[in-house]
């Protein structure tokens, strides 16, 4: 089989639990039980070579945890993650991790304040031994800084000498310096001002075209996602509720939660469209509702939704987990 047609990354039925119990002594004294928080619950998705897959959802929906599971900052409690067809948890698969890098949300926290920019950008080159000499490292760092719109002299400075947007450029340069194929971007523009966000999004688009990168783009901002993504996955309370092509999702959303999210976006065009009032808030993830997690807020919920957890069904190019869609009530 042609490897190039395989997805670059596959996430298969992955779950992740966090132990949020009180310390052992408190549990003993207060007579409480161990408590697990299921941050990611049976998520499956695939990212194709050269595309941008975006994951969206409100805070606490588990999208950032998925990102951290993929790059190995957390280990999956269940399920597996395959990169280029190989299970990342398999022995020897550690080498595969070099082919992916991550860009973080907070440009003020993601760069070591005590390091010079040239050392920050050079770290992956040195650790992965991608250059034969220090001279080569310096040349590569200068090239990377130019590639992200900075100048080579910026390498001598410390991170606090840069603005938020410039720091995010440094972050991108560091991610690129290990020559990755796959970049996991966790809310890379949500801490930035909108004009700076435009600069970073344009840069990311250019880099993707120039270097043939594949992106997993995590964001809560649907407008940003609609601009940059080829396909979009929507998460709610740790579960993937819908995954579709961006063109379809923003025009013809299937899942009631996706519809609700799209309805809630402030309308810049001021077309005066009638907005469905959005009810309720995300429930406590420690105590998720039975059946479909969205049913307490869903205008289309019925007895089955309250009882039975919907499985993912294929609907054209999209997948969706909703009884109402399956029963064609929607």
């Amino acid at each position: 089989m042609d490897r190039d047609n395989l997805p670059l990354l596959r996430v298969l039925e992955v779950s992740r639990d966090f132990d949020v119990s009180r310390p052992w002594l408190n549990r003993l004294l207060e007579g409480t039980q161990r408590q697990l928080l299921r941050a990611v619950d049976g998520v499956s998705l695939a990212v194709n070579r050269g595309e941008t897959l975006a994951l969206v959802g409100e805070s606490g929906c588990g999208k950032s945890t998925v990102a951290r599971l993929i790059v190995g900052l957390h280990a999956a409690s269940q399920g597996r993650i395959e990169f280029d067809g190989i299970d990342l948890a398999a022995p020897g698969a550690q080498a595969l991790r070099r082919r992916m890098q991550m860009i973080f949300q907070d440009p003020y926290a993601s760069l070591n304040p005590r390091w010079r920019v040239r050392d920050i950008v050079a770290e992956p080159i040195r650790v992965l031994k991608l250059a034969a000499s220090e001279h080569e490292v310096a040349a590569r760092v200068a090239e990377l800084l130019r590639q992200v719109g900075l100048v080579a002299e910026d390498g001598e400075k410390y991170p606090h000498e840069f603005s938020g947007g410039q720091r995010q450029r440094i972050s991108i340069a560091r991610a690129l310096s290990g020559n990755p194929e796959f970049l996991v971007c966790d809310e890379p523009t949500s801490a930035l001002d909108v004009s700076v966000q435009a600069q970073i999004l344009n840069l990311m688009t250019d880099l993707q075209r120039g270097l043939g990168l594949t992106y997993l783009f995590i964001s809560h901002n649907l407008a940003v996602v609609s601009h940059i993504a080829d396909r979009v996955g929507v998460m709610y309370l740790g579960r993937l509720v819908e995954l579709a092509n961006a063109e379809d999702l923003f025009v013809q959303p299937l899942h009631p939660y996706t519809r609700m999210l799209l309805d809630a976006i402030p309308d810049l065009e001021m077309s005066g469209k009638a907005r469905t009032p959005v009810a309720g808030e995300v429930p406590n993830p420690l105590d998720p509702p039975a059946g479909c997690a969205f049913h307490p807020r869903c205008p289309h919920a019925n007895a089955r939704c309250r009882r039975e957890r919907p499985q993912v069904i294929v609907q054209g190019d999209a997948v969706v987990a909703c009884h109402a869609v399956e029963e064609r009530r929607l």
């Binding site: 900052l73 550690q94 890098q101 973080f104 926290a109 993601s110 390091w115 770290e123 972050s171």
Partner: peptide, 26 residues
């Protein structure tokens, strides 16, 4: 828990290197 330490982990640096080079100076 700051992101620069996570970035170093993603790069694949060892615990010891992260403690010494990243956390200690800070």
């Amino acid at each position: 828990n700051r992101e620069y330490v996570q970035a170093a982990r993603v790069i694949g640096r060892s615990r010891f290197a992260i403690m010494l080079h990243h956390v200690l100076p800070n």
